[in-house]
Amino acid sequence: MSTKSPIRSVISPGRYVQGPGAIARIGEFLAPIGNTPLIVADDIVWGFVGHEVTSSLKAAGLSVTREPFGGLPSAKEINRLVEVITGAKADVVVAVGGGSTIDAVKASGFLAGIRWVTVPTVASTDAPTSALSVIYTDDGAFEEYRFFPRNPDLVLVDSQIIANAPAAFLAAGVGDALATWLEARATAASNSLTMAGGLPTLTGTTLARLSWDVLWDNALPALDAVRDNLVTPAVEKVIEANTLLSGLGFESGGLAAAHAIHNGLTAAPQTHGLAHGQKVNIGSLTQLVLEGAPTSDIRDFIEFTTRVGLPTTLTEIGLTAEDTRELELVANAATVPGETIHAMPFEVRSSDVVSALKSIERFSRRVRDEAGLPAPKPYVAAH
């Protein structure tokens, strides 16, 4: 048995930069980090950022080498990128794109022994700031978390690019970030270890709460603004909450049931076309039910996240309360040893998760009906 005393830990990226037009300054911020960057971006993303990235890198005296991303942060794609990094003799790898690109780049940069930078083009997850990657199988199911000894050296966020993306991406980021406080407070209550490898810090827990408060105050006006591709103060606040506050909050505050249930949901093929934050929102709602949270809190969460555009019923993620076999698969995956659901301040069994998941359907429909909100529409995954 170890005699070491538990420690508390906060980890963070080396630098975080956010603002309209930030992409045009990538060379300026990248030059102190490496001389031979490898940019990883899919063809769609490169189509709308490639010119500015290329111009900025050349102005900073840096070479321009771009590698297309394969679409999924799987072990196969990560190993492929390591070979590309080695062949290019790159000393820094730069992810330009969404959470999947970012997770693949962090993992490949670590394996290649070089530095890594993230440039998110959507604010749909808190992946850009963290020192871990979520790895999936080639079929899209959750496989594992990979942890790294450091965070990205630079996170550069162009808020105009975020505002130009479909509002659904920002809404998904709200779903991911709202879970941060729910999980951090559970982790603090149980005094469990966080993703930073220590006990929860006051800093991590407080930033998680701040993320929650910022989103409740700003998410709806921010979503309206980005529907017109506008950058407003509310948009800037939501981008920061989704990306930085949530990233620091989950990593140094802790994960609990919501993300474990998200991971479990990936075991159901029906959910594979959904965004990370959409599945996390179902996890957050299920966590509130597992906690026996006040009915008013659950009702408020359903109303608010429905207005944001997030799913609050099984119907909206391709499942039903009658899908017992699928829900048992989800619950079993969410409660395997080592999953973050065991950071809850009470024991959670697979059967508890099944019951909680089934219960949200009828109650969410009731809340939505009483609030005059639209009835849920069935989701059909693309094949």
Rank of each mutant, 00 (worst) to 15 (best):
A256R: 10
A196G: 09
D228K: 15
A267C: 11
A196L: 07
D297I: 14
I298M: 11
S192F: 05
A196Y: 01
A268M: 01
L215A: 07
P269D: 13
F250E: 00
T305W: 01
A293G: 10
L193D: 12
L265Q: 09
L265H: 04
Q278W: 10
T295G: 13
T206M: 12
R299Y: 10
R299N: 14
G204D: 07
D297G: 12
R209Y: 12
H272D: 10
T315C: 09
A268N: 07
L193H: 12
H276F: 10
V214S: 06
F250I: 14
K237R: 15
A260V: 14
N229M: 14
L290I: 10
T266H: 00
V226C: 07
G247K: 02
P221N: 05
L319I: 05
L207M: 13
T315E: 06
Q278C: 12
S252K: 10
A208F: 08
F250T: 07
H259V: 12
L220C: 09
V231I: 09
S284Q: 13
G283F: 06
H262M: 11
A293C: 10
W212H: 15
T305P: 01
G247Q: 03
V280Y: 02
I317G: 00
F304A: 04
A222F: 02
E303H: 12
L210Y: 10
T243M: 02
D213S: 13
D228M: 15
A222N: 08
V238P: 01
W216N: 14
T266V: 06
T286R: 02
D228T: 15
